[in-house]
Design a protein around this nucleic acid. Structure first.
Lengths: 239, 239
DNA sequence: CAGATGCTTCGATCTTCATCGAAACATGCG
DNA sequence: CGCATGTTTCGATGAAGATCGAAGCATCTG
C-alpha cells in the first residue's frame, strides 16, 4: 500500500504545542533566535533545540547563523499559508500535552531581572507610571522622573534625590523581550523592587526568578497604579 | 499564556497514519462505512472506531447511520481544502509510527475468502479470465464458463463438467470490497484455489488468511494469464 | 585568556497514545 | 428466534516521543 503523502509528517510536526508556538511566532516573517523561540514556547533550550532541528529537517524552517546566535524563520510563503489555513480551520483546544513548564508562565508574568521587576507586570507598571505622569521618556535609554513622580516615589519611601545614578541615570529603560516593551530598570527599578518586597507586596521564592505578588501587593498596585490582575491578563491576551 | 488556536489539535488529528488514510479516502466526497475505512487504513475495527470518534469530535468528519452501518464523510469543503493543502506541501515520508499491521497488506493483495482467492490478485485473475474469454458475465450473480474456458481449466486439471453447481452455478461472483470489484468464487473458485496450491503456485501459511504466491506461481500466472506482480501493483496504484 | 552566553548533544525518565483481544450492543436476515 | 454482521466499549500492553539535567562546543566580551 502506498504510504500517505507528507500530510502525516507535516501534520505531526505542527501538532506539538511547543513547535506550533514557535512556528506561529514566525508567521510575521521576521527571524528570531533560538533562545527567544524557546522562551516563548515555554520549553527549555534543549527541548527547543530538538524541536527546531525537526522543523528544519521537515522543511518548515530555515536558519541563519550569526556568531553564536541561530536565527530561524519560516521556510517560505507556503508554510505561512499552511499555518494560516490550519489556524482558520474550525474551533477547538489543544488535545495533546498540557502546557509545559508552568513556572515559565510565572516568569512571563513577573520575574526578577537583575533585581528589578520584569515581565508583563514590570511592563504594565512602567506604562502606568508613564500614564500617570510619574515617569516620562528621557534621552536615549533613560526614563526621566517627573516632580510628581518624585513625590509619588517619596510617598512609597523612596527618596530619588539620594539614589546614585548609573550610566543611564536612575531610571534605565530595559527592553522586556517577552512583552517586547520597556520596563523600569536601573537603580530606581532595583530600589523600587526591594521596597516592594519590604512592604510585603512582592515575594521572591528562593528557587526561582519568578516574583509572587501577594494579596497586599495587588491591593497596593490597585491603589497606587490602578493595576489589577484581570486587566493585565486582558491586555496581554489582546496583544 | 494563550494556547495556540486549533492548529495543534487539528494537526494532531491528521498526523496519525491511520486517520490520515481514512481522511484521504474520503476526499472524493463519497461516504464510506466504518468497516471499509478500517480495512483500507490497515487497522482493526476497534482501532478505527477510536480514530473515527476523534475525527468526529475534532470536526473533520460527520456520520450518518443506516441500520447497523455508519457512513462517514468529510465534514465540509474546508476539510478537503485543508487536506489538499497539506498534501501539496513539500515532500517527505511519515515520521510517526511504522505502518501498522503489515499482514493487512498481504490480505489486500491476496487472501483466502471461504477457500477461494480474494483480494487484488483474485480480482485481477478474474479480469484476465474475462479478458481472455474463459469467463463471461452470466445472469445475476454468476459468471459463465465458456467452451474456451472449460478447455483452459481442463488444462489445469479441473474438469468443470464434474463440478457440482451451487446456488449461483459453479462460478459465483463475489464482490471484493478492497478492490470493489468481483472475483471468482463458488465451487470453481474453490477448486481452482485448491488446485493452485496443489500445483505449488500458492501457499497458505497456517496462521493467516493471506495467500503467498510462490515464484513458480508467478511464472504460471504469467504464462496462463499474463499477470505479473508489477502490472498488478501498477494497476492498484493508479486506482 | 578567563569567564559568560547561546546553543547543541547525550542519556535517562516519564507521559501519552495507538494497538488489539475480549466482550457487548445494535441491526438484519433466514 | 437464533445466528450473522457491523460497530462500539473496555482494559491491558507496548512503543514512541517530549521533557530536562548535565555536559560540551562555539562565539563573544572585558
Amino acid at each position: 500500500m502506498n504510504p500517505q503523502p507528507a500530510i502525516t509528517s507535516t501534520a505531526a510536526l505542527i501538532s506539538d504545542p511547543a513547535r506550533a508556538a514557535m512556528l506561529m511566532m514566525l508567521v510575521d516573517g521576521r527571524a528570531r533566535p533560538a533562545g527567544e523561540l524557546a522562551y516563548t514556547a515555554g520549553v527549555s533550550p534543549q527541548t527547543a533545540s530538538s524541536h527546531l532541528t525537526k522543523l528544519l529537517e521537515g522543511g518548515l524552517l530555515c536558519v541563519e547563523k550569526e556568531g553564536r546566535h541561530r536565527y530561524y524563520r519560516l521556510a517560505g510563503p507556503d508554510v505561512v499559508s499552511l499555518l494560516k489555513h490550519l489556524a482558520l480551520f474550525g474551533p477547538g483546544e489543544p488535545v495533546r500535552r498540557k502546557a509545559p513548564n508552568r513556572e515559565v508562565e510565572h516568569l512571563h508574568f513577573a520575574r526578577c531581572c537583575y533585581d528589578h521587576l520584569a515581565g508583563r507586570l514590570g511592563v504594565e507598571m512602567t506604562k502606568a507610571m508613564l500614564g500617570r505622569g510619574y515617569l516620562e521618556h528621557g534621552d536615549g535609554k533613560a526614563f526621566a522622573v517627573t516632580p510628581d513622580g518624585a513625590e509619588w516615589f517619596a510617598h512609597l519611601g523612596l527618596d530619588i534625590a539620594r539614589i546614585t545614578p548609573g550610566r543611564h541615570g536612575i531610571a534605565r529603560k530595559c527592553l522586556d523581550w517577552t512583552a517586547r516593551e520597556h520596563h523600569l530598570a536601573g537603580p530606581l527599578g532595583t530600589q523600587f523592587m526591594a521596597q516592594a518586597c519590604t512592604l510585603g507586596w512582592f515575594q521572591r521564592p528562593p528557587s526561582t526568578r519568578a516574583i509572587e505578588v501577594t494579596p497586599k501587593g495587588w491591593r497596593a498596585l490597585k491603589r497606587y497604579l490602578g493595576l489589577d490582575r484581570r486587566s493585565i491578563d486582558q491586555r496581554s491576551d489582546a496583544g
